[in-house]
Design a protein around this nucleic acid. Structure first.
Lengths: 338, 338
DNA sequence: CGGCTATGTGTTAGCGCTAACATCAGCCGG
DNA sequence: CCGGCTGATGTTAGCGCTAACACATAGCCG
């Protein structure tokens, strides 16, 4: 195994050329799979490449053809299940497409800070930037920021000025609410995600629309910040305001965990007294007390959808209307017919 | 706001030079903060830079001074709390140090696949590679892979041939076990992480050593894969094997969730019959039934520690013996004196 | 058999930048 | 008042690579 900090000068295309006894341009042709190179020559070059452990310098290559095969990703770096799964789904899809991904985390939503994060990406000559717009302020902070690069947003509303893609949070919320209505619930409360989150807004909208379409009253939701603690606090307030409610739709599983805590504390049992539906299907969901009914999202699919949109944008293809995949309802023990 | 896919040719240093009425080299000097430039000239250049929205091409800069200000990160891309928090802690620390981070996910532990992931990073001219060695196979798969780049490993054993850093999993596990022993428990079971995980191995070692130092029998642990489901299965098996045990130390919180499920199912209550300690302090821990006693890790600190080690390695500094920070015991309701 | 294309290969220029050297003022002391 | 110094600038070369062109050689047609 190689030592640690050795920084030997890499072999260049000229070293390879000399060893193979050809010109550097012929080496370049072999590297880039051009035709019009004799098979024998091709073989000689490949041998020299292997022998010298030659690896093309992508910075040099990028300078010439203005393609870095590098994509930028701007995120808030929150360890929440949704955003972090989105990131790993996308990096995987990018790797499959032979792109590397440079990540930049926005420490806050200040324009200056966002600008700095973006500068870091743009400086790395990314071909496109993927914005994971988990919070509305990020979008606002990005107003006035100039992009010299194609941009793709991961965001459900379509409000951003860029081509966007995301999970169909609205549709997922509708399915969740439908499930509760079908079970006979009428007073269905909503524990919403932060109002600055577009995902949360879509989920709330899905709940509200479904309620009103069934002629049910949608009590004003309580807003959390995705965290279990906020779900606990929000759950308590919701119960205090509407003691007769029989169901809660939580905008994510983490808040649902907190909500279950609050319900337990108030002496209510789930699902006998109150049914609860979450959103995300975190791995824990199955093992909570009680196992949580929730909406499962396919993040690998999302990652591939993002990549597809990036590729379409890069090739200036007429962006096909994005397919926003709908989460799947996973029924467990936290919901019951009333 | 800028349009989406416009790909205007960027201004170069020559454009700035012409506008400011100086030579490109003077622009370069201003950009790099060299002395020996008149303040008036400096100002002219800065104005031209602003006016043209000029942004230096880091690829070109990297070619000349062989510094890309870009670091590579190789990870498995698992959405587990530990690894993903490590990644976000590190990207944050890197940003603070004005480095960008290019992420590559290893799809599997095959040498060929690892090699491909690394090639992607090395191709991006990273100055150093950070390996998040969550699994032993990755280390094995990396045998024989050549690095032309300084490498830093995030790994607790020190078994890898590179400078390494990590949380002190061993110490954390000792604290967790000590806590249970102090509460009077004698038969303390261990729900271990996957045997291919070095973090898991360290945590198990900490538990075993502490047990034996107190003259207690360390029953062979059951091994999970970090997931709640494996914790559930493992918990069941552990209970079946040792029905009289009064405490369980789970190698992470997620498995502890599954273990709580198994305990509940077997009719045992926590902490009355059995005490449980987890590891990680995931945000949910506080709101589980019962709230979980666990070991909290500081991932931002870890991110900074990694960055420090990277910087030391890059500057060929005599690597100071790494400080491995010890997790903090957070006592909640899942443990009780017996 | 001169001129044609097709095929393989080499040569040159230039991507945007910085290091190193060159230049040219202005200033000082002898 | 000249050699040498200092500070501010310009000029040149070259990082590693690919596109574009140049140039051989071979094969084929009229």
């Amino acid at each position: 195994m190689a030592g640690s900090a050795q920084r030997t000068r890499h072999a260049t295309i000229f070293d390879v050329a000399k060893l193979a006894g050809v010109s550097h341009q012929t080496v370049s042709r072999v590297l880039n799979g051009h035709p019009n190179v004799r098979e024998a020559t091709r073989e000689k070059v490949r041998e020299a490449v292997a022998q010298l452990r030659y690896r093309p310098n992508l910075a040099a290559r990028a300078m010439v053809n203005r393609r870095s095969r590098n994509l930028g990703l701007l995120t808030t770096g929150s360890p929440d299940y949704g955003p972090s799964s989105t990131v790993s789904g996308f990096t995987r899809a990018a790797r499959t497409a032979k792109y590397s991904v440079t990540i930049s985390t926005a420490v806050d939503a200040e324009p200056a800070s966002l600008q700095a994060s973006l500068d870091l990406l743009l400086g790395q000559q990314v071909e496109a930037v993927v914005l994971v717009l988990s919070r509305m302020e990020i979008l606002r902070g990005l107003q006035g920021v100039e992009f010299e690069t194609p941009v793709v947003a991961v965001e459900p509303s379509g409000l951003s000025p860029w081509p966007s893609i995301s999970i169909d949070h609205y549709g997922g919320a509708r399915l969740a609410t439908d499930h509760l209505i079908e079970l006979g619930h009428r007073e269905i409360l909503h524990l919403a995600g932060p109002s600055n989150s577009m995902d949360a807004t879509e989920r709330s909208r899905g709940w509200r629309d479904t309620m009103s379409e069934h002629g049910l009253v949608a009590h004003p939701p309580v807003t959390g910040d995705w965290s279990p603690s906020s779900g606990y606090l929000g759950g308590r307030e919701l119960l205090c305001r509407h003691p007769g409610a029989t169901a809660v739709f939580s905008a994510n599983d983490q808040m649902a965990v907190g909500c279950l805590h609050a319900l337990r504390e108030s002496g209510r049992s789930v699902p006998e007294d109150v049914s609860v539906v979450g959103f995300d299907d975190v791995p824990e969901a199955e093992h909570l007390e009680p196992p949580l009914t929730t909406m499962r999202q396919d993040f690998f699919q999302l990652g591939e959808d993002i990549m597809e949109l990036v590729l379409a944008t890069l090739s200036d293809a007429p962006a096909a209307p994005p397919v926003r995949h709908v989460p799947e309802l996973i029924v467990r023990a936290s919901t019951r017919r009333r």
